[in-house]
Amino acid sequence: MLIKTKAIVLTSIKYGEADLIVKCLTEQGVKSYLLRSIYRSKSKKLKIGYFQALSQLEITAYHNKQGNLNKMSEASVYYLYQTLATDIYKQSIALFLAEVLAYALKEEEENQLQFQYIEASLKWLDLHDSFANFHLIFLLELTKYLGFYPDTSSMSANFFDLEEGNFTISQPFRSFLSGKKLILFKSLIGIKFDDMVELKWNSESRQSVLDILLEYYELHLPGFKKPRSLKVLKEVFNEIS
């Protein structure tokens, strides 16, 4: 079926000498495409430079229902980033989030609200200068669309059960938060991008919250892996107090 859709690039892997396999989040869900001979092609309809991590495109493609790789016939930049491609800190966030999304999002039916959230969030990051806690807010808010946002009905409790996703007065047997880590986690809940300056965190606190969130993802998403770019992200953000 021939469709035209917005697409956000998650991964692109060279296949053979001239082909490229691209995984995108589209308005129809996560789709993978085989772009044949793109490294040799001089076509203006498909350019290798379009398929960088988190590029926002409009594509024309053929989607099949057999689970095979789809075909893309045309692509153009839908939203041109102003700073995301040049700012080293934003680049490190983009590479990290692209990996997280590639692991977390499955090839399934469309989820328009999820797509709109990711699309709007990336535009926010591109257009703002204060973003040190962006990736933390993004990851927590994304769990709303993945189905395991924390149950906040008992937030006054002294423990958070990472496996069950709720706050509890009794200490869970495994994988829980308490003390300083619990305070940090609670302070993130409900914070929007525009309010992130309220989080007076240093790099140590950010890394602690990031580790918590990644553990939370691992417990709730079968097969989820810590991104390879995590080390780079932590090193870059060590420079931000």
Rank of each mutant, 00 (worst) to 15 (best):
Ser41Asn: 06
Ala120Glu: 14
Asn202Ser: 08
Gly165Val: 02
Leu97Lys: 06
Ala53Trp: 08
Tyr145Trp: 04
Ser187Gln: 11
Thr26Ala: 07
Gln82Ser: 12
Leu105His: 04
Lys180Ala: 15
Arg174Trp: 06
Arg174Thr: 11
Leu34Pro: 14
Met155Trp: 07
Phe148His: 08
Gln114Lys: 12
Ala61Glu: 05
Pro222Lys: 00
Ser121Val: 03
Phe160Glu: 05
Gln207Leu: 08
Gly147Phe: 00
Thr143Tyr: 01
Gln112Glu: 14
Ile88Phe: 12
Leu142Glu: 01
Thr143Gln: 04
Gln112Cys: 07
Asp211Met: 03
Leu46Lys: 06
Leu136Val: 04
Ile189His: 10
Val77Gly: 10
Ala53Arg: 13
Ser73Gly: 15
Arg206Gly: 08
Leu199Gly: 07
Val209Glu: 06
Gln91Leu: 14
Ala18Lys: 12
Leu113Asp: 15
Ala157Glu: 13
Ala53Ile: 07
Leu219Lys: 01
Ser203Ile: 04
Arg40Cys: 03
Ile183Cys: 09
Ser170Asn: 10
Glu119Pro: 01
Leu25Ala: 05
Thr168Trp: 02
Glu110Phe: 02
Gln52Leu: 06
Ile183Phe: 10
Ile48His: 13
Leu136Phe: 01
Gln56Lys: 15
Leu10Glu: 05
Leu184Lys: 11
Ile212Glu: 06
Leu113Gly: 14
Glu107Lys: 11
Thr60Val: 15
Leu35Pro: 13
Tyr216Met: 01
His220Asn: 12
Val236Asp: 07
Met72Asn: 06
Tyr50Ser: 06
Glu119Asn: 13
Glu218Leu: 00
Arg174Ser: 13
His128Asn: 08
Val22Met: 05
Ile13Val: 14
Gln207Glu: 12
Arg40Val: 04
Phe160Gln: 05
Asn238His: 14
Leu221Ala: 00
Phe159His: 05
Thr5Val: 08
Gly147Asn: 03
Ala7Val: 09
Ser12Thr: 06
Leu162Asn: 03
Ser37Lys: 15
Pro227Met: 00
Gln66Phe: 12
Leu54Arg: 05
Lys231Gly: 14
Met1Leu: 11
Gly16Asp: 07
Leu139Arg: 02
Lys14Glu: 15
Leu34Glu: 11
Lys71Pro: 08
Gln116Ile: 04
Phe237Met: 04
Met196Ala: 07
Trp124Thr: 01
Ser178Val: 09
Ser208Leu: 10
Leu35Phe: 02
Asn133Gln: 10
Glu17Tyr: 05
Gln207Tyr: 07
Thr152Leu: 15
Ser37Gln: 10
Phe138His: 02
